[in-house]
Nucleic acid binder design. Structure first.
Lengths: 221, 221
DNA sequence: AAAATGCTGTTGTTTTTACAACGTAAAGGA
DNA sequence: TCCTTTACGTTGTAAAAACAACAGCATTTT
């Protein structure tokens, strides 16, 4: 096994595992490493999978082909991050997406049942591993839920206010800085950038918000 | 403890647990039951929680108040279903939503750490419990992801086609029945019903789809 | 059977959004 | 310094969506 211990050690899945234990755990978990060439399928839509993948090197794309063959890239997975955990957890759910190496990549697979069923040795770290997996899923869940809350709003204005309100509450202040530039924010809210900029200006004119660059201020009237 | 064993036994969280074991497990998990009167807060936004709630009787609403005080009901939780698992799994994440009993309700709480840390007795069922929790979260994840895929599309037409394509692939057939009526579908895709109906008619005129009531047929041209 | 209700499609109008194009200012590199 | 690139706001136009209102049909209730 090549030396990807840094990647593994720093991954969220193996957080709080000591370096000495990691190697033993990987053995116990029966982790397998596979190399994929550019454009090679790692998982294909329709497949039933039982393993979680962790990118060790390269980059992996999650994508979806629709009924008419149109392909959409849903996300990119970088070293240390995992993929497939949702489908691996659902034994009867065929993959709704495909996973492809976008360049030559090294991927480590761990069977979900090996994660779930506690082994005899290093049990404490095993519990930790399960907890990390749960945290990863909870975090993803939260991210998705928040996005849905904003996007389900009908107008650009409402989407903006929903997002800004969340940021304000999160920062516990009516003034705060957002982590997106305009284009990124527009993509996140899935609206047109210029239309969004326009709407931001209107909100400013109507004295509902103030902003300069990425600093926003919400007003109560 | 009143007799809610049927509810618990039939819940997803306790699936595959034998009736004899459930009682012992609840003891081991230090499950607590609390009664809430109508409109009473169960969790409040901003709070840090460490317990998962299971509704045993009544109904519970997940809701959100924005910066300006506008309240939105996000979802309803019925007997046997759990809530708070996302925030309970994330030790540092303050609740972004509030949970309120919409009528007089009985709620059972289980501390997430009791679920995560394997006890000495009935270990097999404990593993099962963790697995069920993971399944619940994976399922929710999948549901959210699919919805986002559709909603992020810009036009009503694209949203419709994205949804219909998914249904088609799921049913492994170009003809299938959808589980929503028009209003429900419009709500799900967060578009206007009449505009959606209109778009459906156009798609039919353009010979891209056929439909009658809830039966759809997709065409490749 | 009659009445009421719910679901769906249709249409016209108004509002909102997307799109394209452009000007300006700031940032970064040669 | 000059040039290039990037980010952001602005505007006009065309397209799309929301909205409101209604008609036809089916289902349910009385």
């Amino acid at each position: 096994m090549k030396n990807y211990s840094d990647i593994i050690q720093n991954s969220v899945l193996f957080r709080n595992t000591t370096q000495e234990n990691t190697a033993a755990m990987l053995e116990c978990l029966d982790a397998r490493i596979k190399t994929y060439s550019k454009e090679e399928y790692i998982f294909e839509a329709g497949e039933i999978i039982s393993s979680v993948g962790m990118v060790l090197d390269g980059t992996v794309h999650i994508l979806k082909d629709d009924f008419w063959g149109n392909r959409t890239i849903i996300s990119e997975v970088c070293p240390g991050q995992i993929f497939g955990e949702t489908y691996a957890s659902l034994a009867n759910e065929p993959m709704g997406v495909s996973v492809i190496a976008s360049k030559k990549s090294q991927v480590m697979f761990i069977n979900i049942s090996k994660i779930m069923n506690i082994c005899s040795s290093a049990c404490q770290f095993h519990t930790n591993l399960i907890q990390n997996l749960l945290i990863i899923m909870a975090q993803k869940n939260l991210t998705l839920t928040k996005k849905i809350e904003h996007i389900t709003k009908r107008t650009t204005r409402e989407k903006l206010l929903s997002y800004l309100s969340e940021q304000s509450i999160k920062n516990e202040s009516s003034s705060f800085e957002i982590p997106f530039n305009r284009q990124q924010l527009a993509d996140y809210l899935s609206v047109d950038r210029s239309a969004m900029s326009n709407e931001l200006s209107k909100l400013k004119d109507e004295n509902i918000i103030e902003f300069e660059k990425n600093n926003f201020f919400l007003k109560r009237n």
